[in-house]
Structure formats: structure tokens, C-alpha cells
Design a protein around this nucleic acid. Structure first.
Lengths: 198, 198
DNA sequence: CAGCTTCTTGCACCGAATGCAAGGAACGTA
DNA sequence: TACGTTCCTTGCATTCGGTGCAAGAAGCTG
């Protein structure tokens, strides 16, 4: 009698619902009173769960903002690998990053999220760690595009290109944030890349 | 009767001595049992001071490894500004970073320090934050070298170049670390820069 | 219904970090 | 030398993020 073949079980549905509830509640509080000024206890109370349960849904306070890094990392990697092999490393990275535009959640606009990152050192730290992880994930593909033998030696070139591209992305986003969201991030990114390859 | 005109007072001397004692004790413990596995209580006990006093000498556990970021930042900035104005941005940054080789302390070799950073996420995070700070400090000088008007608009180009150079430095150091300290970091740095400017 | 798994919760605990106040040592000065 | 000021050390209490554990509730499956 399954109208839905892969109908998610009740547990799964409530789990997702609670997860979403915590996220939106937390983001709302973060925007209202700042990330660091908001405690986990407040989030839990506002979301109607216990402090302990919060840590069953999220490994840390930062995770609420960061989202699922595993999934995002995989998506980025797949996007890059889906780019035609004829594209250069820089072209492929550019298109991959542009396709990464995070959509606004109901509780916080991208600009508010960016402001949160700017305000909270621990969030920025996690963000940069995420980029280190991406270096690993994207390196094989970029090595191929650079014409580097996938040899044994730890060649720093692919990672350098990825890290530089991510750095351009960060400075572009930061400049966009400081403009209050009025400037064009893609244009800023291109300008940044052009500057360091000049 | 001052044989030393600017003779440091006793307080100052003991303060420096205690500071150095904590540093070497902590580094020894970090190398022996790992950074994260070492608690502040252990350090304090081994250094013969109270836990509370430790936090009078260092704002955080990380600070013991990081050193005085203000002073280091100022040094980097001055080094860059001392480079001849005829050098390009990349040349000046290269020479600035090369002159930055941290000398080994008595308690830990540069390679052991590098391994510590690789092991401890919180140290890596602070390291990357330090680089963000350097972006600010070095940006004015690099803007000049890029021929950018020090205008009002938040131009991402200088920061992009600095961030990219720092990224090259990081991947070079990481490759050097993974080679067990056998490869030449300067050579790796140059290869990294060449790769992304090709 | 019975039995298994999963979720929630409270509790105790750890480790980093901060504010406060009291006691003591060093310092500059009369 | 004596005295008041300043700085250092310490303990104590507290905050906050995060984890292990165990008991009970609730969903799931045969």
C-alpha cells in the first residue's frame, strides 16, 4: 500500500524537521544578537529541545552555519570533474565556484551569513579549514588539467593553484560583503585572478 | 652606579624568564604527547606555576606556539616595506617570506613545529587567521607595487596577490614537511608560484 | 503483542578561558 | 630604612562548548 516507494519513515521525517527547525532558529538568533553572543542553551531552548539533543543533531555550534561539509565537498568535487577536460585549471575552477552560489535560507540572507563569518573568528577558521579540505579533494583533477603526472612525489603546484583560486574567491566575497552586496562578486573574482596572473 | 643604563628591572627579568620557561616546557610537552593531548594544567604544573598564572602570560594555549603575533606582523610589514620599490609585488613578497625563517627553539625543531600545526586544527586555524591579518598589513605596500591608486573603493587585487603568495608559502611548507624536511622549501615555493602564474 | 532500534534527556564531567579579590613581593620615594 | 604604590601570583567561582553514559520513551518490525 505504499503510495511512495521510498517513503521516508516517520523517524526520518521528524528528524529532518527538527534539524531544519534548529537551523532556522539558530540562524535567526545569530542574526538578531550575533553568533558569539548566542549560546547553545539559547538555541536549544528556542528550538524546544534539550541542550544534549542539540549536540546529537550538530557536532558543534559552528556546524549549524557550516552545513554538511562532506556533502558540499563532494558536490564541489563532482562539479569540477563534470567540467570539460578542455578547460584549463583556472577556467574549470572559476565555473565550479560560480555554480556554488548558496541560496538564501528563510532565516538569513547570504549577506547576513557573510556578515556572520566576518564577525566570528571561529566560523572563519572553519571556513578556511574547509578550503584546505577542498585542496585535497580537487587536487587530482587539477593535476590532470595542469598536465602533471599523478606521480608519487608531493607536487605542490595543483594545491597552489586551488588555494590561490579559493583565495581569490574569498577576497571577492569579502569585497562584495563590504560593498553591502551591491558589487558583482563574479567581476571581483575575475579582477582578482587577473591581478595575480598578470 | 648603573653598569647597564637601561638595566631591566628584576620584575622584568623574572617575567621574561618565566615566559621562556613556560614556552620551552609547553613545547617539550607538545612534542612528547601531542598538542591537543596536553592540558594547560599539565603545562602550568610542569612549569611550576598555577593554572591562573599561565593565563596571565599567555592569552590562550595556542599563543604559546604562535608567539607574539603583533610583533611578528610588524616585522613582516617592515621587511616588505624595506624591499626596494623597484621590485614587483611577487618579488618583494618572495624575499620577505624567505627572510622569515623561524629559528629553532631549544625545545622543538621547525619540523616538529610544522608537525604540531598539521596535527592540531586549532593551531592551523590561528595560522590562517594570522595570514588574514597579514593581508591587511601588507595590502597598502602591495597596492603601490601593483600601481593601484590608494583610492576609496575596496579593491580586491592586492589582497588576492598577498593571499595567493601566502597560499604558495603554505603548500610549500606542507610539501617540505611531508618530505620529512629533506626538500628545499624555497624551490617548492618558486614552483608553486610559477604554476599559478603560468 | 514482543522485541529491537533509535531518540531524548539528565547528569556528571572535562578543558579552555575570564573576573575578582586577597596576599605578597618588588619598586620608587621620603 | 620605612612607607605607599604598583605589579604578580594564586585560588575561587563561573561561563561556555563539548562528550560519555545510562535510563526511559517512542517508533519500528516480525
Amino acid at each position: 500500500m505504499d503510495s511512495q516507494p521510498n517513503a521516508p519513515t516517520l523517524r526520518e521525517r521528524t528528524r529532518r524537521a527538527v534539524h531544519a527547525e534548529i537551523t532556522s532558529t539558530a540562524l535567526r538568533l545569530f542574526v538578531e544578537q550575533g553568533y558569539e553572543a548566542t549560546t547553545v542553551d539559547q538555541i536549544a531552548a528556542a528550538a524546544g529541545i534539550s541542550r544534549r539533543s542539540f549536540f546529537h543533531y550538530f557536532g558543534s555550534k559552528e556546524d549549524v552555519v557550516m552545513g554538511d561539509l562532506e556533502a558540499l565537498g563532494a558536490r564541489v568535487r563532482e562539479t569540477l570533474e563534470a567540467r570539460p577536460a578542455t578547460e584549463t585549471a583556472w577556467e574549470a575552477l572559476r565555473e565550479t565556484f560560480i555554480g556554488l552560489q548558496e541560496q538564501a535560507t528563510d532565516a538569513a540572507t547570504p549577506l547576513q551569513i557573510a556578515d556572520m563569518y566576518a564577525e566570528a573568528p571561529s566560523l572563519r577558521a572553519r571556513h578556511l579549514e574547509k578550503h584546505l579540505r577542498w585542496q585535497e579533494l580537487l587536487a587530482p583533477n587539477i593535476e590532470r588539467r595542469l598536465g602533471i603526472e599523478p606521480g608519487a612525489t608531493a607536487d605542490p603546484r595543483a594545491r597552489a593553484v586551488i588555494a590561490a583560486a579559493l583565495a581569490c574567491l574569498d577576497v571577492a566575497v569579502e569585497a562584495w560583503r563590504q560593498s553591502g552586496g551591491t558589487s558583482d562578486p563574479v567581476d571581483l573574482f575575475d579582477k582578482a585572478v587577473a591581478a595575480l596572473r598578470a
